[in-house]
């Protein structure tokens, strides 16, 4: 933990993340305006009344960015949880049992990786209706492969350790050994992967919403706010700057925290 504290970037990341989570949780309390209602007759630059200005149809950008953080963080978090669960199941079974099962599962991972996932996501989103739940599920279903490989590698080394043999010797079943004995020993790299994965998921959600296939207006998400801002980049850049800044900061913070955790868990590097 001291090592984490020494890492200024990680601390910065943690503070920013904490702030964003606070904004997301209390968006309804701290937002000065309703994010979906038109409060001015036109777009306005940042002012005391509207700190981040108003958008092309006169909605308060500050409030929209706050509510957007709720959407973006939730989507990122749920997508990562889905990816981690699938990745753990695939990786653990593969690494622990090895042999034919390992070959089959890992070939499936290769196939999934061979698809450019953004096309996969776009295709699925076009076929399904693009709503927030589908966004979470689709991102989760297309981003678990890295976790699976990581967990597999971790299980390959862990299963040779003597505590596993000792667990067999007290009568633990394979499933019990996988989930109760080995998995807790593999948590550290999984947490790192989850942190970095959440950054990726937030970016994917933004990209999807930017393309109109993600969170649907009028619900604000950072991505669809950017899409709306496109046409006004020259005359009203603040419409794009603030959601863009929040995407950047959140992704950067997650990377910093992830790297900080990685250093804590692997002090050798």
């Amino acid at each position: 933990m001291n090592q984490f504290k020494k890492n200024k970037f990680a601390i910065f990341g943690l503070v920013v993340l904490g702030l964003f989570i606070f904004l997301a949780v209390f968006a309804n309390v701290i937002s000065p305006y309703n994010p979906e209602s038109i409060v001015e007759s036109e777009t306005q630059p940042p002012s005391l009344k509207h700190w981040f200005g108003t958008d092309e149809i006169g909605r308060d950008i500050l409030s929209r960015v706050f509510y957007g953080s709720r959407i973006s963080l939730t989507v990122g978090f749920v997508a990562v949880v889905i990816a981690i669960i699938i990745g753990i199941v695939f990786g653990a079974l593969s690494g622990y049992f090895g042999g034919f099962l390992d070959t089959v599962l890992m070939r499936f991972v290769d196939v999934m990786l061979a698809f450019p996932s953004i096309f996969l996501i776009l295709t699925i989103q076009i076929m399904l209706s693009p709503n927030i739940y589908n966004v979470m599920i689709v991102i989760g279903l297309t981003s678990w492969m890295g976790v699976a490989r990581l967990v597999r590698g971790e299980f390959l080394t862990q299963k040779e350790r003597q505590y596993v043999e000792a667990a067999h010797a007290i009568g633990a079943s394979n499933l019990r050994i996988i989930f109760r004995h080995i998995l807790p020993n593999a948590i550290a790299p999984i947490v790192v992967a989850a942190t970095l994965g959440m950054a990726g998921a937030i970016l994917t959600e933004s990209a999807l919403s930017f393309l109109g296939l993600g969170v649907q207006p009028p619900t604000p998400s950072w991505g669809n706010m950017l899409m709306d801002a496109q046409a006004y980049m020259r005359d009203a850049p603040w419409i794009a700057i603030f959601p863009g800044l929040f995407i950047l900061l959140s992704v950067l913070s997650l990377y910093f925290v992830g790297e900080g955790l990685r250093q804590v868990f692997n002090p050798k590097e």
């Binding site: 350790r161 003597q162 505590y163 043999e165 000792a166 667990a167 004995h181 807790p184 020993n185 948590i187």
Partner: peptide
């Protein structure tokens, strides 16, 4: 030492 699970 190696027979015991380090995280419990």
């Amino acid at each position: 030492f190696t027979s015991l699970n380090p995280v419990f």
